[in-house]
Simulated scan of single mutants.
Amino acid sequence: MEYQAQYITPDIKLSCYDDKFFKSEIAFEHHMLIWFISGETKIVQPDGTRIFRAGDIFLIPRNQLATIINYPKDGLPHKTVVMHLTTERLKRFYDNIHFKPAAAPQPRIMSFEEHPLLKSCLASLIPYFEMKDPFPEDIASLKITEAITILRSIDKKIDAVLGNFEEPGKIDLLGFMEKNYMFNMPMEKFGYLTGRSLTTFKRDFKKIFQTTPQKWLTQKRLELAHFQLSQKKVKPMDVCYEVGFENLSHFSFAFKKQFGYAPTALQEQR
C-alpha cells in the first residue's frame, strides 16, 4: 500500500494513498473533521453503513466505534484533509465563551455534505502542505478555531458534542458487547469504553458470558458473517472486513472450521 500522511501540525494532516483499499477500526481519542478531496469511504457502525465521497465533509466524534474502509476511486487516490479537534483545544475554546453544558447526545457521525464555509476553511489549508517552512502555530490555531466556529454556526446542538469532556463511565457490558462485537479493537479499548480496567473487563466478561472475550468475539463475528452471506448479496471479502476479521485467509479458515464449508459455498448456493 502506497500511503502518505503529511502533517503541517500535529492536528492537521493531508492523508493520501492509492492502493485498492485501506481498512481500520477506530475509536479516536479526539474528534476528527474530515474533508474528502477524492476517493470513497465506507463507514460501518452498529446502526448501519454510510458512504462518503469526494466533496463530503463529516465529523467523527471521539470514542466512536466504527470500521472504516477507504478506497481510491475513478483513477484518483483516496485523499483527505483531516483536522483533529483535541479535548485540550476545545476546553480552551469553551473557556472563552458563555456556554452551559447540555446532556451529551448519543454519539454519531455528523455529515455536512459540501458546506461552502467548511469547504473554504479546509481548502485554504492546501497551499500550506506545499510549504517548506514550518507552519506557524498561531495560524494553525486560527484555522482550527475557525472550523469550530463554523461548526457551531451550522449546527446549534453541536456544543453538546464538542463541549462534552466526560470520560466513559462504567456501563452495561452485555449491551455494549452485543452492539459492538464486530469492531476489532484491543481488549484495553473495549475496557476503556465500558469504564473498566483491562483486568476488570476480563473478569466481568467471564462472569457474564462464561467464556473469554476472544472466543466469544470470534463466534459472534462468524455468526454475523454466515447471516450476511446466506441472506444478502455480499461478497466474502466485504463480509470479512465488515464483521471484524483482519484478512480473508484467516476469515475463510475460521469460517470453514466453524461451519464445515467455505464462505464461497454460501455464495454459490445462493
Rank of each mutant, 00 (worst) to 15 (best):
Y128K: 06
Y128R: 06
E130W: 06
M131P: 00
M131V: 01
K132S: 13
K132H: 11
F135Y: 15
F135K: 07
E137L: 12
A140M: 06
S141E: 15
K143G: 01
E146G: 01
A147T: 02
I148T: 14
T149Y: 02
T149E: 04
T149K: 04
I150R: 03
I150E: 02
I150M: 05
R152F: 10
D155G: 08
K157N: 15
K157E: 15
K157P: 00
K157M: 12
I158N: 09
I158W: 08
D159W: 03
D159G: 15
V161W: 07
L162V: 08
G163A: 09
G163F: 07
N164T: 10
E167M: 13
P168K: 07
P168L: 06
G169T: 14
D172R: 10
L174Y: 12
G175N: 14
F176E: 09
M177G: 02
K179H: 10
K179E: 15
K179N: 12
Y181V: 07
M182W: 05
F183H: 15
F183A: 08
P186V: 06
P186A: 10
P186K: 12
M187P: 00
M187W: 13
L193C: 08
L193Y: 11
G195I: 06
G195C: 05
S197G: 11
S197M: 04
S197V: 03
S197I: 03
L198H: 11
L198T: 11
T200L: 12
T200S: 14
F201N: 04
K202R: 14
K202C: 06
R203M: 08
D204L: 03
D204A: 05
F205V: 03
F205N: 03
K206H: 09
K207P: 00
K207T: 12
F209V: 03
F209A: 05
Q210D: 13
W216N: 08
K220Y: 10
L222K: 07
L224E: 15
F227R: 14
Q228Y: 13
L229N: 06
L229P: 05
Q231W: 01
K232G: 00
K233S: 10
K235V: 01
M237C: 01
M237N: 08
M237P: 00
